[in-house]
Design a protein around this nucleic acid. Structure first.
Lengths: 338, 338
DNA sequence: TTGTACGCGTTATCAT
DNA sequence: ATGATAACGCGTACAA
């Protein structure tokens, strides 16, 4: 910039003024400066600008597991919206590992991001302390944090799972296995609550032995399903609390020599592009990924531009039950135990 | 830092020395300073540090489509390795859109990233000019750029597709449809070359009407497959040049009232976690995602720490044909046209 | 071993 | 309308 100023024989202040339009500059000078910029090939230094202004036009995006197609899609749209608004995105993912999560949030804050969008791996005290300490615009997505009162966009998990469970109940199932996500997450807890609520509505008892924790991962879900299926009175249906786990569920069913939906009905949280293509066509709860991403990005953008209300905004979207062919009426499942 | 210096009644230079270990400091002073740091809660400002040192400890990661599970996995491991090395990751994805790609690379360079890892959307002149102009450590992944001579880690695409095609040929297929990726990418071109090579080895003519461009996207692949299947002499087998497209292929087969593998055999580039679970179990070419990500990260890390050789390193990994059940011998496909 | 002073590239303030 | 200069927070050369 100094070079430009010299080349146009003006002061750096004037150069800055034309670049940022922060002060009126006479047309002749403006032209001379713009030409000098071209000639020199000057580009302003974002680092120096950040140092001076205290902003980086960068937001930190931390999700528990980018490998999960749900998060992938959300990340893609957030990134898109943010880029259009001139913001860069720093990505962190931690494989649902809470310790790694703590390091990553530090990394982000260290880099002076202007805001944070987080889908937390677990309800971690350290994380909450760091977030509070950073005092940055923050929006939580998918998963809430107990006692953290920020902008957020989440799903009505309870309602969605309740509907799905009710649907299975309506098909005549009485022993519905449930593969849960980590109860350290709000989604894990709320989804399970939805399952319980449906049972209660149907005046059926909640049985611990039908519920296994799968931690949102395929491997854990596989083991959990194996246990469920090996029990004396095995479930006639299984609900998986997310997309990754249903793969484990299906593998377990296959490995134990059963078939879906003939022997056991299956439904799952999260829809897939291919749920409709491969057999069995899976019955799922579809989340409005596009909307979630857009809203989250908009929330942080509003907060960043200071046009958000002082009180946090909490958006709750609804899931949609996609009924396909992986659940059958019990009357049609000959090998089910009456 | 000034505050810390005051609190410990030493100079900033000494504080800097203990923080960076750049100069010997007496134990007593060191202790006093470290305590002051604790008390004040001092954290060094990465922006100021970047301005001074000219490095950001951040690498830009730009992939054509994060929504593609292959890229997702690679991104996840790159992110992991880089974080462990203390580097932040700026993520960009552009939906295979070349114009957006140009803007994103500018964004990254603007933010003064120390290095670039790129899976380019297309062989774009602007992109190449920008990369060359930036003069940054760069590693290309998955897709090469004509005339850009940097570190890279790619697959032996030609060989992999040749093997897969040969396998289908061995099953008796003579009309093998090919849904290609964009020929603006090296993977698109090399994979098609593999198909051609197999045909040639089998002394079969290459027929334009059996090949359609699907641009690596589901929708385009769907249309392409529809055309292929509607033709008078429809193919008895179809190869899809990536994972996203095979979903379009399967949907088209379903919508046109055919079945895989009974009526048409299918194989695809890129493996899925669920390829083994849902029907038909898909025959695929598995890429060593973990290795690709690790190598790419290591390449840039080496380059960044200046311990790379001057000449670019080009790593070529091998794919693995995962034979499952989506391809049948022609003798078993009654509806195939002889 | 420790302290002072300067420079990194911007922008904002103030004076002209 | 334009220019001079301080300040952002750090690292480091050089002096003590």
């Amino acid at each position: 910039m100094l070079d430009v100023a010299k080349a146009a024989s003006v002061s750096v202040a004037t150069v800055s003024a034309v670049i940022n339009g922060s002060a009126p500059v006479s047309p002749e000078l403006r032209a001379r400066i713009e030409e000098a910029i071209q000639v020199i090939g000057y580009k302003r230094n974002a680092i120096a600008r950040s140092l001076k202004l205290g902003i980086t036009r960068t937001v930190g995006l931390m999700v528990a597991d980018i490998t999960n197609p749900f998060f992938t899609d959300v990340v893609a749209v957030i990134q898109d919206v943010l880029h259009r608004a001139g913001y860069a995105v720093m990505l962190c993912c931690n494989d649902e590992d809470v310790e790694m999560q703590d390091e990553q949030i530090e990394l982000l804050i260290d880099r002076s991001v202007d805001g944070l969008i987080i889908a937390p791996a677990g309800d971690d005290e350290t994380l909450k302390r760091i977030i509070a300490g950073a005092n940055l615009p923050t929006v939580l997505i998918d998963r809430l944090l107990d006692g953290v009162d920020t902008d957020a966009v989440v799903l009505d998990n309870r309602r969605a799972v309740q509907d799905a469970t009710l649907y299975m109940l309506g098909l005549g199932h009485r022993r519905i296995g449930y593969i849960s996500g980590s109860l350290d997450t709000s989604t894990g807890r709320e989804r399970l609550a939805g399952y319980k609520a449906a049972l209660e509505a149907a005046k059926l008892p909640y049985e611990d032995r039908l519920v296994r924790i799968g931690n949102f991962r395929e491997k854990d879900a596989y083991k959990a399903t194996m246990q469920l299926l090996a029990s004396a009175e095995r479930p006639t249906a299984i609900f998986s609390a997310n997309n990754l786990m249903v793969i484990g569920v299906m593998k377990a069913i296959r490995d134990i020599g059963l078939k879906c939906p003939e022997d056991v009905s299956v439904a799952s949280f999260d829809d897939f592009p291919w749920a409709d293509v491969f057999q069995p066509h899976l019955t799922t709860i579809a989340q409005p990924v596009q909307a979630i991403g857009e809203q989250a990005a908009q929330l942080i953008l509003d907060r960043l531009s200071g046009k958000s209300p002082a009180t946090p905004r909490r958006l709750v979207l609804q899931g949609r039950l996609m009924i396909r062919e992986s659940c059958r009426p019990t009357s049609l499942t000959p090998r089910a135990i009456a």
